[in-house]
Nucleic acid binder design. Structure first.
Lengths: 146, 146
DNA sequence: GGCATATAGTTAGTTATGCAACTAATTTCA
DNA sequence: TGAAATTAGTTGCATAACTAACTATATGCC
């Protein structure tokens, strides 16, 4: 066995504990300070709907890397806040299409700006090539495990 | 404003949703299949105690990147499972030292092997230099935000 | 010495996650 | 055509996350 085993084990705690948590916390804090009452998880659902509205819950699972119960409850909460609405699909009666309300559409510009601003803060001293490499590594890790 | 803004926003969902979740899920699954009844979060606390036993809860917060209430409850659950024990510090009566039990010490080898094995699966096609760069980028992101 | 401040840890409330078991609609294929 | 298998979504249960408010101990400083 190679002697880099420990370093690999170490990477787990780096990946899972640190940067992603720090980014999520900061973004959540920025939302709160701007008077936005949404959680970072709810935002990540809206983010995908802004790119393409009226997705099925299953499609949201795929795009946000969450399981079905998580999406069910995120949509429940977003519906309570009147940010999305479940619409029955006409072609397949099992499917709920999740569609944005006008209120959600108004959130888009404000939150995307905050997110970009947060990522700019987070990525000071990190160049484009490094970002691309991180994304590539993560894609490979994801593909290896799924 | 540079035109790589969108890419930076994009990175958030990559970082936060994908690889870290996939690794954690796989490791949790491997624990379960080996008959280990611990969660991945509990393991990450034990992991730091194996490196240095009898840390304060605050020190565990720092090392695992969790907040105090999270550590309080993780330690509660680990104590219920008789894997750690809270010991009052002699020098400072505010402090609980969290110490491993013999049962926890026996878990170490089995789980570290599983973790290394999981990371080896996860990191197929990723070389040492790429791993080092990812760690460096994450450290920088963390430092930028804290 | 004694008051203000800081630090360690706990508790309460809300949201989110993972898993397993469930219902309902759809597809497959003999 | 119709039974079996698949797919979309929900519900229940346990654990974990963040915030805010709390108690208790320790430190700083006049």
């Amino acid at each position: 066995m190679p002697n880099n085993q420990f370093k690999r084990g170490e990477l787990y705690s780096v990946i899972n504990g640190m940067a992603s948590t720090a980014v999520a916390r900061r973004l959540q804090k920025n939302f709160r300070q701007s008077g936005l009452e949404i959680t970072i998880e709810q935002w990540s659902v809206l983010y995908h709907l802004w790119k393409e509205d009226c997705l099925s819950q299953q499609e949201l699972c795929n795009r946000t890397f969450r399981d079905k119960p998580s999406i069910t409850r995120l949509i429940d909460n977003l519906e309570k806040q009147k940010l999305v609405k479940r619409m029955p699909s006409k072609s397949d009666r099992r499917i709920n299409l999740v569609c944005l309300t006008d209120a959600a559409k108004e959130l888009q510009d404000r939150t995307i700006d905050l997110a970009n601003q947060t990522m700019n803060e987070a990525l000071v001293g990190v160049n484009k090539e490094e970002i691309e490499l991180v994304k590539l590594v993560f894609q490979r890790v994801y593909d290896n495990l799924t």
